[in-house]
C-alpha cells in the first residue's frame, strides 16, 4: 500500500524543529500537503515506519540529511513547459532584452535543467546567446549534476518536441541532442555561458543584478510569508524594467513585495520591475 498511516502532525513538527535547529533549514514554510506527501515517500524509500524514526536517523547523519533534503526539494519539469509562455518570451520579452548590451538571466530553481536548456535553445535561435550569461541554481545538488550532464530520457523527447514547436521553434529539434541508449544527450555548447551553483533561495545571500529571473513552479511549495520573502529578494537584485517570470498558475499579487513589480503579461505571469526602492 502506498501509505497505511496518517502523517502524525506532532512528529512532523518535531522533525521540522530539529531540522531547523540542527541544519538551519526551515521546512515550516512549506505547503503542508506537499510536504506531508514527500515525507511519506521518503519514509517508504528509507523503509521507516514513523517520522520520529526518520528524525532520529537524520539528526545524527548529515549524509542522510542531504538525501532527505534532495527528496524534499526535487521538482519535476519538462522542456519548454507551458510552450505558449515560451512563445510569449520569444516574441515579447526577447526584443526588450535584445536592446541591452549584455543579458543576465537567473534560473532560480533550475531543477534537472530542462528550463535552462530550453532557454539556451531559445536564446540561440534569437541570436542572443553570445551576449547572454545564465546563472542556474538549485538547493539540490543531485539535480544540478543532472543539469550539467544535459542528459534527459529519450522517451520524453516526443513531448519536448511538441512543446518546442508550440513555443515557436522552427529548427529541427533533434539536432540539439544525440540519442544514445535510453537517453538524449544535449549539445553541451548550449550551456557554455551557464554557471551552475547550489543555492538556497530562502537562506541564500543577496545575488547580483539580473535582467530576467525565472522562478517557475517553485513558489507553489511555499506558504505566503515565504513567497513574499523570496519575491522581495528578487526585487533587490533587479533594476527597473527587468523581468520576473513565475509559473503559469502562480501569482505574486497576494504578496506585499508585489509592489516592486508591474504586470507585463497577466496571462503568462511575467512581471516587470518598477521604480520602487
Amino acid at each position: 500500500m502506498e501509505d497505511t498511516f496518517e502523517i502524525d502532525i506532532l512528529e512532523l513538527s518535531a522533525l521540522v524543529k530539529m531540522v531547523r535547529e540542527k541544519y538551519h533549514f526551515d521546512l515550516k514554510e512549506y505547503a503542508l500537503s506537499s510536504l506531508s506527501r514527500r515525507i511519506k515517500r521518503i519514509l517508504e524509500m528509507f523503509n521507516l515506519s514513523s517520522i520520529k524514526l526518520l528524525a532520529n536517523k537524520i539528526e545524527n547523519d548529515p549524509v542522510l540529511f542531504e538525501k532527505f533534503l534532495n527528496e524534499i526539494t526535487v521538482n519535476t519539469t519538462e522542456m519548454f513547459r507551458d510552450p505558449l509562455v515560451w512563445k510569449h518570451l520569444r516574441e515579447n520579452v526577447f526584443p526588450e532584452l535584445a536592446k541591452l548590451p549584455e543579458i543576465r538571466i537567473w534560473h532560480s530553481a533550475c531543477s534537472t535543467g530542462e528550463e535552462v536548456y530550453s532557454m539556451a535553445i531559445a536564446l540561440r535561435e534569437a541570436g542572443l546567446d553570445k551576449k547572454a550569461t545564465l546563472f542556474a541554481s538549485d538547493i539540490n545538488n543531485d539535480v544540478i549534476a543532472n543539469a550539467k550532464a544535459g542528459k534527459f530520457p529519450l522517451r520524453t523527447m516526443d513531448h519536448s518536441l511538441a512543446n518546442y514547436q508550440k513555443s515557436g521553434g522552427t529548427k529541427k529539434f533533434a539536432d540539439y541532442y544525440t540519442a544514445k541508449g535510453i537517453d538524449a544527450y544535449f549539445d553541451l555548447s548550449l550551456i557554455q555561458n551557464v554557471t551552475f551553483k547550489k543555492f538556497d533561495l530562502i537562506l541564500g545571500r543577496q545575488m547580483e543584478q539580473f535582467d530576467l529571473i525565472l522562478c517557475r513552479n517553485v513558489l507553489i511549495y511555499f506558504n505566503l510569508p515565504l513567497q513574499d520573502q523570496i519575491i522581495e529578494k528578487f526585487a533587490h537584485c533587479q533594476n527597473e524594467n527587468a523581468f520576473l517570470m513565475t509559473g503559469a498558475r502562480e501569482t505574486i499579487i497576494w504578496c506585499k513585495s508585489a509592489d516592486y513589480y508591474d504586470v507585463f503579461s497577466q496571462d503568462f505571469k511575467i512581471f516587470q520591475r518598477n521604480q520602487k526602492q
Partner: peptide, 16 residues
C-alpha cells in the same frame, strides 16, 4: 497540475 486542499482554507498546486 495537482490540486491540493490545504488547511487554512486555501488551495495549493503542485507539479510533482
Amino acid at each position: 497540475y495537482h490540486m491540493l486542499i490545504e488547511l487554512g482554507n486555501t488551495i495549493s498546486l503542485s507539479t510533482d
